[in-house]
Design a binder for these strands. Sequence first.
DNA 1: TATTTTATATGTTCGAAACATATATCAGTC
DNA 2: GACTGATATATGTTTCGAACATATAAAATA
Lengths: 125, 125
Amino acid sequence: MHKHPAHGCGCYKERQSRWVEPSILFLLMEKPCHGYELMSALPELGFINGPADPGAVYRTLRHLEKAGLVASAWDTSHPGAAKRLYTITAAGKRHLGLWAESLRRRWTNLGAFIKKLDQAVAQKT
Amino acid sequence: MHKHPAHGCGCYKERQSRWVEPSILFLLMEKPCHGYELMSALPELGFINGPADPGAVYRTLRHLEKAGLVASAWDTSHPGAAKRLYTITAAGKRHLGLWAESLRRRWTNLGAFIKKLDQAVAQKT
DNA sequence: TATTTTATATGTTCGAAACATATATCAGTC
DNA sequence: GACTGATATATGTTTCGAACATATAAAATA
């Protein structure tokens, strides 16, 4: 049993759910990136506190590529370690639209629940 | 590989994250309940579509009880199958307050991300 | 009597984040 | 020239907790 980082209690950590995939698709919608660039941009989206996990990024990229939602090419134009440049595909853009819809539902449901919570907590104080 | 129920695509199902525990604590805040009652009330909170999973409910109740957040007593006053009546404890109420805080952060972050998503999607249409 | 509803409980699988480790190139510095 | 740290990519393993499946039994109802 670990500590819930937000609750500071003995209960489980609060894990996020499906944030890596939509985050990466969003960043690639703005412009093509390589993995390391995505890693440094991810924390600014507000889902994590510390630095992003390379494992999450590169594995998700491979998954997305296998699904045809992003495409990659080795970038050898620059000196230094070889970079793989990822681009979002048309299918990826459509997919991000679906994500936007389902995330919005999630957000609405969560908002309704929080409202109920607030009322309940306020009532019993 | 299964179908994402919302996306209708080949990608993974979108699983929820930590909704059972706060939901149950909330319902017990309103009034003491037994497990079966909670099961039928859960779908109304908007996190699931179909009926609630008994496994999720009873296991969470046991977990919460072990953590001292709820207390239970066998209810033999009524005829019929024996029911275990669950009550939220003072610690449970405090805990629900923490949940409210962290869920609100989640909601705010998600809202900000969705806004960015909308802009990106609108821009590239 | 047979089926459904009420009621509780455990066993197993699975998705995806979290955590850990490995490898190689290049830039700067001591 | 050796050492350190940033850049860059990749895989291995653990963990959490929802999702799915199954088991049991008493009572209500058809």
